[in-house]
Design a binder for these strands. Sequence first.
DNA 1: ATAAATCGTTGACTTTTTCAACTATCCATA
DNA 2: TATGGATAGTTGAAAAAGTCAACGATTTAT
Lengths: 159, 159
Amino acid sequence: MATEVDDGPGTEPAEKLTAATISLDAGFLLAKLHAGGSVLNNRALAAFDLKERSYSVLALANSGLEPTQREMAEFLSLDPSQIVALIDELEKRGLVIRAPGKLDRRAKIVSSTPEGEALFRRAEAAARDAESAALAGLSAPEIATLKGLLRKALWGPAA
Amino acid sequence: MATEVDDGPGTEPAEKLTAATISLDAGFLLAKLHAGGSVLNNRALAAFDLKERSYSVLALANSGLEPTQREMAEFLSLDPSQIVALIDELEKRGLVIRAPGKLDRRAKIVSSTPEGEALFRRAEAAARDAESAALAGLSAPEIATLKGLLRKALWGPAA
DNA sequence: ATAAATCGTTGACTTTTTCAACTATCCATA
DNA sequence: TATGGATAGTTGAAAAAGTCAACGATTTAT
């Protein structure tokens, strides 16, 4: 991530390079939209002393799905050691707790404290607003279509 | 990014966490699909001693649009200093050249050498295959819709 | 019982990102 | 037509993120 995006997408200064063939590349488009959204997201989450990463960990801890750290790592496309650091931080702040896995005591299940849940609720609302800003160029049905396609690409028709 | 993705999407081992509300978050979906695609992309580009970053710079140099480094930086959501390093590398390999801007001599226009163009053609084909693999879960029309929505979100209905 | 595999953790290492200078050049305007 | 402020590229340093191999504790397979 770097410069650009000061007031959300749509405010860019010309973008003559959109004519380059790389702007038809899905990977590039995903990266660029993600980059712009990240700026807005992190800006919104900073009010809660969270970043995209710690927010997503907090979200999984709040899911009620009792995820292990390993599952979090895989789901978030992060190295297990990065999860350790993120959870250390959240745990230190009293937002999540580690508990030994019920049927596998090697694993640790991460869940949210009441404080963590309260913070998550507020952060979630802010993140939703940031997403709206990042996708302001799309209508509600278009956003639904977009998300549906992304989900299908990731997990197939099932999910 | 990190672990996962060994044979493209659709080969994941369960993904129980898809039920978490964060998997409805556009930012998360964009990041995750991009992460998976990046692994495939970089794997494919490694055969040409390129990474996603250097490939995208090479692509812009091959666009015929005579981009300046600044324009590249903004378009690729990178810091200008990162562009310097990427171009240094490509220039050292004889794939691109810097030329002073015609009407602004501060700016440097980056364009491709014949060698750079030849390499780009081959790398482009490999990148296309990697994209197909990353989006294997979608049909051709769905991919077109997805790209269209991403482009619209970024640049509005025009582009 | 034993061996191999897995989970979380640590620490080292590399890469990427961020940011503040600095030079050269451009632009505005007095 | 000078002069001041902005902008393009570059450099270098510092912070953050990513990669990877090892280890103890535990589980699974034999």
